[in-house]
Design a protein around this nucleic acid. Structure first.
Lengths: 206, 206, 206, 206
DNA sequence: CTTTAATCGAGACGGTACGTCTGGTCTTGTT
DNA sequence: AACAAGACCAGACGTACCGTCTCGATTAAAG
C-alpha cells in the first residue's frame, strides 16, 4: 500500500527475527476503523474505540500508526473497494459526467462522510492531509487528467485547455458542497458538468 | 451580530433586572478566541485555553456559547476587520479578479488558517458550518452574485450564465487548495480567474 | 489529620472562592481505599480500583493525593477506627502485655495485611515510609514510651532501662513475624512479653 | 543451590534430549539481577531490565523463574559471596556482638537494600518470602541458635533462656530499623546487643 | 436606599480519551 | 530443545479538557 503511513518492515532484507506481524490483527483494525469512521465520523473516531471494536490492544495500534489521522486514512483507503475508474466509453465528456456522478454518489454516502472527516482532521494534522492527497486525491486526479488529455489529443476537447484549472473547477465545487453540507444531487452535478464541460469542447465552427 | 450563535437576551422586553452582561468580558473572550485560532488552529483551540488567555471563567464562556465551533466562528467574524467588499471599478471582470486575489491573500494568512479550522470543526458540528455559511459565506456570495448579475445586465458578461455554478467553480477551487494545503499564490489565482472568466464574457461577434 | 499527605486548604483564611470540596467524596475514597487495601494488599491497590469502587472519578483522586502511597496511608489511618491506646490499669506490665496482644490481634487481621503492604511499598518510595512513621508508628511509640517511663518513675520498672531498645525488642519482633508470615498467636506474644518484661521489672531485693 | 526456586531438570535421568541449558546464560541473568537490585531496589527491578542488561530474552527468564521475587532471591543469594559465619572466638557474647555488627554493616550497604526489597516483594508474593526464609534467614538463625546453646551449655549464658525470643529481639530490631530507614550505626547496634545480652549472661552470684 | 436578580470568578466533580509503560504470553526463525 | 527477537493482550499510569455543578462576590436596575 503506497499510501500507508504505518511503519512497515523493509521486506527486502529477508526475514527479521521475532514474531512476524499478524495480518489478521491488521485487517481487523482497518476494518473496525472503516466502520467506526462511517458511523461516527472522525469526531467520534477514537483509537480506544477502534481497539475495542476490533478486539485488539491499544498498544498494538499505537505501535503501527503514528496518529489518529493516519489510521483513519488507511482505514478509509482499505475500505474503498469500489474504485472510481472512468468507464471508457467513446466520449470523453460522457466519461467525465459519469465519473463526476459516481464521485458525488460516494460523497452522498458513508464514504463522503469519511472524506469530509479526513479533510477536517487534516487541518490540524498535516500528515493526514498529505496521506489523503497521496493515497486518494492524486491517483484520481491523474486518471482524469489522462482522460482529458486524451480528449484534447483526439480533438474532442479544445487544445488550449488548462486542465489543472478545470479539474479544480469541478472537484473544488464538489468538495465545497460536501464540506458545506449542501446538496450533491445528480441534477446539481449535471448542471456543474454541463456548464464546465461546455467550455471545454472544441467549437465546431473552427 | 446577525451571525452570532451565542444566546442573547431578547432586547424587546426592555431591560432585565440584575447585573447586565459585561461587554468587556465578551470582547476579551472573542479576542482571545481569534488569537488562539490563528496560532494553534482548531486542533489547539480549547475552551480552557480561551478562558485562560482571556482571564475569564470557563463557566462564563459556556453560559454564552453553545459549542466550541460557535465560539470559534464568532471570534473569527469579530476579528475580520478587513472586509472583502468588491472595489467597484468599471469592469466586472477586473472587480472579480481583485476580489479573488484578496480572498486568496486572506487565505494565505491567519484568517485562512481559521477558515480551514472552522470548516473542519463543522464536519462534526453542523451548527458551526451553518453559522459559517450564514455569517460569512452567504453574504460574500450575495455580493459577488450581485456583481455578476450587474455584468450580465450591462452586457459585459454573457446573459446565459449559470452564476451559481461559476461561483462554485471559483470558490470551490480556492477552498480546495486551502484545505489541501496547496499553493494559493496570486499567479495561480490569476490563472483561475482568467480561465473561468474567459468563458463568462460576452462574445463580441453577437 | 496530622498525617494527611493530601493537599488541604488553609482553614484560617475564611472561605475560599469556588465550590467547596465534597466531604462525602473524600470519605468514599478513603473507605474504598481501606477496603481495597485489606483485600488486595498494596500490590493490588490501584488508583483505578479505588476510583471504581468508590464511584469517584479518577481525576478527583489525583487532584488530592500526590501518590498511590499517600492515598493508601491515609486510607489506612482513616480506617483504623479501633485505636490502640493503652488500657491504663494499675500495672504497667499488664498494660504493656494487653497492648501487645491488641497490636498482634490487629496484625493477624486485615490491618496487619495493610501494615505489611505499606512497609513493603515504603521500600521503593521513601515518602510512604515517612508517612507511616509520622502517622502511625511514632504516635504509638510515644504512648508506650510514656507508659514505660511512668513505670520507671513509680518504681515498677528498673530505673536504668534503655526504653528505646526495649521498644525495638518488642515491636521489632512483632513486625518481623508479621513480615515473614509467621505465627502471631497470643501465646507467642505472651512469651515475648514475658521474656522481655521480666528483664524490665525492678528487682525486689533492692 | 538448595534455595533455588527455579525449575531444574532431574539430573538422575541422564541427559535430556534437546539443547542443554546454558550455564553462561544463567550466570549472566543472576549477575545482572544482583546488580540491578543493588542499584534500583526491587521497585526498579523488572524482568525486562534484567533481560536487557544480561542480553538475554525475557522468555528465557520466564522459562526458568516463576516470579520476579524468585529471581531476585536467587540473584541475591548468588551475589552474597561474603558469608556471615560467626567468628568463633572464645566468648559467645563477643561472637554475637561481632555477628550483629557484621549484619548491620551489610544492611547499611547494597545488600541491605536488596534484603529490604525482597521482604517487600514477599508481602505480595508468598513464594518470595518462603525462599528468603529457607535460603537466608533460617541458616543464619540456625547458626546463632547453635552458638547460644553452646553458651548455655558452657554456663556463659543463663540456662533458662528462650533462645527463639532472644533472636527475635535482636533480629527484629535490626530488620525494623532497616525497613523503617532508620539509622543502623555500630553504636546503635552495640547498644542493642549490650541491652539484650546483659539479660542473657548467667548471673555470677549463683 | 434597599431589595432582587443576574453576571462573573473560582474551582470541585464525573467523565472520556489520550499516549505511555510494564508484565506476561505467544509465535516465529536460528542455533 | 533452547534461545533471541519481538508481536501481542491486558490494564494501570498520569494528563488534558470536557461540560456540569455549586459556591461567594459583585453589580445595577426596580421597588
Amino acid at each position: 500500500m503506497s499510501a500507508s503511513t504505518a511503519k512497515t518492515r523493509d521486506p527486502t532484507v529477508g526475514r527479521c527475527p521475532g514474531r512476524p506481524r499478524s495480518d489478521a490483527t491488521r485487517a481487523a483494525i482497518l476494518h473496525a476503523a472503516y466502520d467506526l469512521l462511517g458511523e461516527a465520523g472522525l469526531g467520534g473516531f477514537t483509537i480506544e474505540g477502534v481497539a475495542g471494536r476490533s478486539g485488539v490492544a491499544r498498544t498494538t495500534i499505537y505501535r503501527w500508526w503514528p496518529s489518529k489521522g493516519a489510521l483513519a486514512m488507511e482505514g478509509f483507503l482499505a475500505g474503498m473497494v469500489a474504485d472510481l475508474h472512468a468507464p471508457m466509453t467513446g466520449s470523453v465528456v460522457a466519461d467525465m459526467q459519469s465519473m463526476l456522478r459516481r464521485l458525488a454518489g460516494l460523497m452522498r454516502g458513508k464514504a463522503g462522510r469519511i472524506m469530509a472527516s479526513i479533510v477536517a482532521e487534516g487541518q490540524s494534522d498535516p500528515e493526514t492531509i498529505k496521506a489523503y492527497m497521496d493515497g486518494f486525491v492524486r491517483p484520481r486526479r491523474a486518471e482524469v487528467t489522462a482522460l482529458m488529455e486524451r480528449g484534447m489529443a483526439s480533438g474532442e476537447l479544445r487544445a488550449d485547455l488548462d486542465v489543472e484549472i478545470v479539474l479544480y473547477n469541478l472537484f473544488g465545487a464538489l468538495y465545497l458542497r460536501l464540506l458545506m453540507h449542501e446538496d450533491l444531487s445528480d441534477a446539481w452535478v449535471d448542471r456543474l458538468s454541463a456548464t464546465v464541460l461546455a467550455n471545454c469542447v472544441a467549437s465546431k465552427s473552427t
